[in-house]
Amino acid sequence: MQSRRRDEDFIPRLLITLFVILVDVIMLYPIINVISISLSSYTGYLENPIMLFPTDFSLSAYNQVFQYSLMLTGYGVTLFVTIFGTVLGVLLTILTAYPLSRKQFRGKGIFMGLILFTMFFSGVMIPSFLLVKSIGLLDTIWSLILPGCLSAYNVILVRNFFSSLPDSLIEAAEIDGANEPFILFRIVVPLSKPIISTILLFVAVGYWNSYFNAILYIRSRELWPLQLVLREIIMSATAMNQSTDGNLAEMGNAAVQPIMLQYASIVVAMVPILCIYPCLQKYFEKGIMMGAVKG
């Protein structure tokens, strides 16, 4: 009986396995290709642009990327912004979501409405700039952290998760004399590791990849984040100087082929995130599903 069931399952399982392998290859191939090209010479790239392994191994692209002193400051700024911004963002999200998940909070409907409103309507570039300027954050590192620190979407996710926790747990704690901060940080948060890990990853990746706030609010090159520095390196190398009107004399030449520089920049930017993600992966999936269960 069991062996017959196994025989019946064999073909479907084989097909599913093959399909999953295909999806894995489709997902992994671009990353492996980018890394391989970044470690190859330009000739190697031209010979075989779809390579899986480096051809004619060369680190010249990385040499050019790292010879900029702004790379060091860029890494420093991005690390500070990501770490501090993630901690602050997650803390604010938890502190905002918790009262909104409590039944006793009478005003939560109004605040939830206001939060939802910001998801659909927000200030565009110039109003945001004027706001940041008026509160004195212009050209400071805080302008890279505070605007956009609290995401409405994350608040909703966490609030839904908190709502799904058994009321009896919280009631039991209240009976034992626990106050709200105690309940939040000693009971609710430890039970919410999946969702907190999820939003931690969202927030961290968001800060790591951000560069547009720097374009708007930062004047000093020492405060340029990593992504902006990489963008500048690539733009200088491709000599796509703005508005040269096709004036050939104004267009320079690159020491390293621009395409190689682009690939090296992609690797430099994504490696730290690739290192963090596996640690949080086990919580990620669980967190997303749990946050979506209850509205």
Binding site: F129, L216, E232, S236, N241
Partner: peptide
């Protein structure tokens, strides 16, 4: 004052 060259237009607008 030298904004990022890649985003000079946006910086000029700001």
């Amino acid at each position: 004052e030298v904004p990022p060259q890649s985003s000079y237009t946006e910086s000029l607008q700001m």
